[in-house]
Structure formats: C-alpha cells, structure tokens
C-alpha cells in the first residue's frame, strides 16, 4: 500500500518535471514500478573471477561517507583548497548553471544560489554576463559576523551554513558585499520526500524557514570527487573548478593548470579592493565566443524582466524608441 503511494507521488512529481505532458505519464509509472526500497545505485557490482556478481558499496571504493553531519561538516576535505575560475568570454547567459543548482539543491522555486548578472562597468564599456556563485572568501565577512557560528569556513576553503544553528539575524547578509546570501522568508515548500532527508550543511537539503542559504560549492559532490553542479551543467564550459594545491582546474572537458590559466588570461577577482580574498577568479570577457546580445535570446519573460532596470537595457529601449 505504502509502496503504491510512493510510486504514485513520484509519478506526479516526474509528471511535473516533464513539463506537464500527460503523454509521458504511464511510461514513467511503469519505469518506476520496479522502485526498490533502497537505491541500489549506491552500490557497485563487481564480477569475481569465478563469475559471481558481488556488491560493494560505493562508499568503500570512494573516499568519504554518504552522510556528513553538521558537526562533521566543519572539517574540510584534507589537503584540498578549492578554487573556481569563471571565463566571462564564454558565458552567454544560457542559465543552465542556475537551473542545475536550483534542481540539485532542491531550492524553493524563486531561490537562486547561482545568479547571472548583466554587468556594464560604465556606459562606454561593453556589457557582459557575470555568473556569480558564492566567492568562498578566505577572509569571509559573513563568518566573522555570525553571532552563533552557524556559518563557518573550512580548511578546504568552503564556507558553509548550518541551518540547524542559524538564528536568522541576517547579519551575514548585510556583511556579504556580493549579495550572495538568500533568506527563507517563508516556508521553503519542502517536498514530502525531502522532509525525510537528514539535513546536512553539505547538501543544504532541506532548506529551513527563517534561515539563510547560499552556494556551497556542492560540498556533497566534492566528497565523491565530482564537480559542482553548475560546472557540470554549463554547456559552454564557462566554469572551471579545481584544487589550488594541486594547481589544476577543469570545466569537465578541458583540464588546465590553474596558475597557467590565471597567467595567460589575466584573471582578476571581483572587488579585490575589499580584501575579502575570494576563491573565485574571473577571466575578462575578451575575444568572446558569443556576442553579448545572444544572452538575451530565448529568455523567459520573467528572467528578462530582471534586467529591465540595468543601464544597458534602458539604453537599448531608448535607441529602439528613437528609431
């Protein structure tokens, strides 16, 4: 009975994912009818010399446990210091990083941990698209001002939030100069499935009302040696990610020494003068792969509306009206 219920709920959820197309309904239902109690995917099958299939848990092969408690999450991954390099010359506002982040962290529908800004430094300068994750600063204002230690920096450079500790004073939000942090102003619409999930600061699931959330460099995936979701999702290979100690960054396809990339492309950090020492570097938008305007094509009306007040869009509108 309960199993039935389960699959039905999953079916409904998947139905929604499929964009509400009824046609796909029964197929997914059948595919899911085999749903076992535990995800067998967490195990790997090994064929022994005598031809027998043996199950080995993934955890025993890969370093790190599946669940990381809030207390354990204070410890960074040993001998690592993560860094992100964002190539502004490749970004065309495809917004796949934003979507992958939202889906991957089960965020409420109107929350964005990764944002893509339309930037124009001054009226004579050219506009560009500016993806903005959390900068995981080495001198994080947010972690300094937190009165209860709910947000903290780890040895591997990642700044996390423990939603179980956060009192919601929002001091960190005013402390962060990059507007990275988002607040759960209302009930975060946690799905029934997520309600059963044991909370870990490394996944951020489920979000809690009255607490702060932000990009966590997908700390859960890093434990499994997997790239953050935004890096994996980006079709243009805009976002490079890696470990600064082993001096290697990758966008999934290209793997380059970090020092070489930074040197060759004159990398900079946003608002360096503030002294927050971000872990995110930007490559300037020179020799672009796509014209800036292509980032405005095929945009959802709602998404387009957010750029309405930028000087660039106002100017475009003016030019259009003049014609």
């Amino acid at each position: 009975m309960s199993k039935n219920k389960n699959s039905r709920r999953d079916f409904l959820k998947l139905g929604l994912l499929a964009g509400g197309t009824l046609v796909t309904g029964s197929m997914i239902k059948t595919a899911l009818s085999e749903t076992p109690e535990n995800d067998p995917g967490s195990n790997i099958k090994v064929l022994t010399p005598d031809g027998k299939l043996v199950e080995i848990s993934k955890a025993s092969i890969k370093a790190g446990k599946e669940y990381v408690s809030p207390k354990a999450s204070h410890q960074g991954i040993p001998h690592r210091k993560f860094v992100m390099v964002i190539d502004l010359s490749r970004c065309k506002n495809a917004r796949k990083c934003v979507e992958a982040c939202k889906v991957g962290h089960h965020l409420p529908s109107d929350h964005e941990w990764m944002k893509v800004y339309l930037m124009q430094d001054s009226s004579k300068q050219s506009p560009y698209w500016f993806p903005r994750p959390c900068f995981h600063c080495d001198s994080p204002m947010c972690a300094s001002v937190c009165p209860v230690g709910a947000t903290y920096k780890r040895s591997d450079g990642i700044v996390l939030i423990d939603s179980g500790r956060c009192i919601g004073c929002k001091f960190c939000m005013t402390g962060c100069p990059y507007s990275v942090r988002v607040f759960n102003w209302k009930d975060p619409e946690v799905s029934e499935e997520d309600k059963k999930v044991k909370y870990s600061p490394e996944t951020g699931i489920p979000q809690v009302e009255g607490t702060v959330g932000k990009c966590i460099f997908c700390a859960d995936l890093l434990r499994k040696n997997e790239l953050p979701r935004c890096v994996q999702a980006c079709p243009m290979g805009v976002i490079f990610f890696g470990d600064i100690i082993e001096d290697t960054v990758t966008n999934g396809t290209d793997t380059i020494p970090f020092s070489q990339l930074v040197k060759d492309r004159s990398a900079f950090r946003y608002l360096e003068q503030l002294g927050t020492e971000p872990s995110v570097y930007y490559l300037p938008p020179t020799e672009r792969l796509f014209p800036f305007e292509s980032g405005l094509d095929d945009l959802d009306k709602k998404v387009l509306a957010r750029y309405k007040n930028t000087p660039y869009m106002k100017n475009q509108k003016k030019l259009k009206n003049d014609k």
């Binding site: 085999e34 076992p36 995800d39 067998p40 995917g41 967490s42 790997i44 099958k45 090994v46 064929l47 022994t48 010399p49």
Partner: peptide, 13 residues
C-alpha cells in the same frame, strides 16, 4: 538495476 541517475556500473576482475 540502474540507480536514480539511470546508470549502472560493472567491474570485471
């Protein structure tokens, strides 16, 4: 049986 992401891995000794 595939996992949630639809993939399955087999290691042959």
């Amino acid at each position: 049986t595939s996992d949630k992401q639809g993939s399955a891995k087999l290691i042959i000794q």
